Computed example of a mutant assay.
Amino acid sequence: MLGLAGPALADAACTRPEAPAPVDGTTATMEQLLAAKAAVTTFITASDAYQTCVLDDLEARKKAAKAARAKLDPAVAKAADAGVSENQVDKERVGQAFNTAAKAYKAAHPS
């Protein structure tokens, strides 16, 4: 039952993406803003894949525990939920930071 025991194992196969650095819209060039947008999009896509991976892994562990007639350590589910929740907060923070930068860029570079 070792594979079902440890909470650290809940997302062992899933790699949480690193959030991109924010860009300062008041000083950024259009190229920097576009690069930041691409980095944010890549991060959000990778975050979605990470969250799916964690949830799929948790579901597989639940099924394995049921098949083995064992109980899944509640800490495994708690760790998975925490990983998904923390990553969701990162996604929202990164998206908001980019939107703020884009607005600042538009204000600093009126057409």
Score class of each variant (00 low, 15 high):
K71Y: 14
K37Q: 15
D90W: 12
R69I: 03
F43C: 01
T26V: 08
F98Q: 01
D48S: 15
A10E: 01
E59P: 02
D73Y: 07
A70G: 07
Q32K: 12
T100N: 03
S85G: 10
R69V: 05
Q96C: 02
A64Y: 04
K37E: 14
D56L: 04
V54M: 08
A77I: 00
E18K: 15
P7Q: 11
G6C: 10
L33D: 02
F98A: 00
T15F: 09
E92A: 10
T29I: 06
L55H: 08
Q96L: 05
A5S: 15
C53A: 10
E92K: 14
D24Y: 09
A108Y: 10
K103V: 09
L2D: 14
P22Q: 00
T45D: 14
K63F: 08
A101G: 00
A8I: 15
D57S: 14
A101S: 01
P74Y: 08
L9T: 12
D81Y: 13
S47D: 02
V23P: 08
D73C: 02
V94R: 03
A68P: 07
G6R: 15
A68I: 01
A21D: 05
T100P: 00
G95R: 11
A49D: 12
Q88R: 14
D90P: 06
G6D: 13
L4E: 01
L33T: 01
V76K: 07
A107C: 02
T15I: 07
K71F: 13
A101P: 00
A10M: 05
P17A: 02
T27L: 09
A49C: 08
P20Q: 00
K66N: 10
F43N: 02
P17D: 01
P20M: 04
A46H: 12
A97C: 02
R61Y: 07
H109Q: 05
K63H: 13
M1G: 13
A10S: 12
R61I: 01
T52Q: 15
A10F: 06
D81M: 10
A46N: 09
R69T: 13
D57W: 07
A108C: 03
A39S: 05
S47M: 06
D24V: 02
R93W: 10
Y105H: 06
A8W: 15
K62R: 15
L34I: 03
R16C: 04
E18Y: 07
K66V: 06
A67G: 07
K66M: 04
V89D: 10
A12M: 09
T29K: 13
T52H: 11
T15N: 12
L55A: 04
S85M: 07
A60D: 02
L33H: 05
A60K: 14
A97I: 00
G3Q: 12
A79W: 13
A107G: 06
G25K: 04
A108D: 07
E31I: 06
V89T: 10
P17K: 06
K103W: 12
T100H: 08
